[in-house]
Design a protein around this nucleic acid. Structure first.
Lengths: 239, 239
DNA sequence: CAGAAATAATGATATTAATCATTAATATTA
DNA sequence: TAATATTAATGATTAATATCATTATTTCTG
């Protein structure tokens, strides 16, 4: 391993958690009135409390998940361990890959970080529309492609960066892509942040402390303010 | 870190390097004669020598890559480091995600492990066909989805398994999915194997030695024979 | 075929970050 | 409000594995 704090090198995008250009996109823009109606007639909107599962890895699925609002994580897990793939804010599809598995089994779990609402769209209707509506399916292809590329960035970050870089990266991601503000009320505990950044919660605590000492961030009771974004980005870039 | 050799736990698929069900699939099955002709008229077939780049991360691309035969790796890199995303044998598309990037820039590099040939299909023609041919685009969606799920498995393997599990995993992957035989002439050096399994080449050497001592594999001059597949699978599963 | 270069093998050491143990602070509940 | 549970903080220790240094073996090249 490398012998440094704050040193290393990485040029792959550090913003790997969600789509960077998420304006208030209308995902259903390319649907005809008839198709919109069809979806409306074949969906239910469900409210999920903080901590509840929207989907469970390995279970059968008969619907596509669209997160109306809230904040969720998708993750693969086994008895002992958990790897977060992505965190997803409102107005996004959750888990498209699973839609095209032959057996319709969720390849990952989805859990709400905060109270959230999601539309559960009948999977057969959804597939039918994708098969028939070229423009919509092309949007889905672009989305799948983008997700893949973002995942590459996250994979690289986890494999090649050390803990300081990873945590700096995650803080910037959350600030830029989730809360879209340099100051925010973090909905995640240290434990959850560790899970997201791929490290133990003790490490999160130690590194946050160092960041505070170095005046890169301010933090009190999970209210976080990013003070030195450039330096944080540098740490993220350098490892 | 955990205090063990050969112990841990993991239930996520260990076969994450290529499509497990790769029969001799005809990717162009759903194209009309006219579309096939269109592709044929707008592609070139190129021969790449072992070690040559088929694509370079960051460079502009004007074509879709289809590997006719050979063996290549796709990887993200920076100045110092390399993370292999996938290794791909013949009769497969390489790098679909990049096709739908707005800027048409390769998000990763592609290098031939062995002499290979690839079709370079004009990207606009390819996109046009995807936009017009529903059945073909649905196949592409399924492929993108499958790739994503396989990548989840690889990500999990790298994050949660230790070196013995990762290397066992990679050996099984290569045996099952690339050479489709328990005995094969490995085209990768120890260094390349280390790159693929996410560890130093010294670690590869040490672990292979242990596997040989334990009679799990036989190896001489890169000719590998898997003797105890079950035990190897167990090591891969257990971490 | 001989010399050079690349790859493989092996031991010693260093480093990152996990785990363990304990205490402090905050939040929840009876 | 007191008691309890959860989360945060901090130091000590340990484990996994990378790095470094050196030698052996194989492959390549003139």
């Amino acid at each position: 391993m490398e012998k440094c704090l704050y040193e290393n090198s990485c040029t792959v995008s550090q913003l790997h958690l969600t789509d960077v250009n998420q304006k208030k996109k209308d995902w259903f823009y390319y649907l005809s009135k008839k198709e919109k109606k069809l979806i409306e007639d074949n969906q239910v909107e469900v409210f999920f409390k903080k901590g509840e599962n929207l989907a469970k890895q390995g279970s059968f699925s008969s619907y596509a998940l669209f997160l109306t609002n809230g904040l969720v994580k998708t993750y693969v897990e086994n008895q002992h361990e958990t790897l977060i793939l992505k965190i997803i804010p409102g107005n996004n599809f959750i888990g498209l890959p699973l839609l095209f598995e032959e057996n319709n089994v969720f390849p990952y779990s989805v859990t709400a970080y905060v109270d959230s609402t999601a539309k559960l769209i009948d999977i057969n209707i959804f597939k039918k529309i994708i098969k028939e509506n070229n423009k919509f399916s092309y949007e889905i292809i672009k989305l799948l492609s983008l997700n893949t590329v973002l995942l590459y960035g996250r994979f690289f970050c986890f494999e090649k960066k050390q803990s300081y870089g990873r945590l700096a990266d995650i803080l910037l991601c959350i600030s830029n892509n989730i809360y879209k503000n340099i100051e925010f009320e973090l909905a995640l505990s240290r434990k959850e942040l560790g899970e997201l950044a791929g490290m133990s919660y003790e490490s999160v605590i130690r590194i946050l402390k160092k960041f505070k000492e170095d005046n890169l961030i301010e933090e009190k009771n999970n209210h976080i303010k990013i003070i030195n974004k450039d330096k944080l980005a540098q740490i993220s870039q350098l490892g």
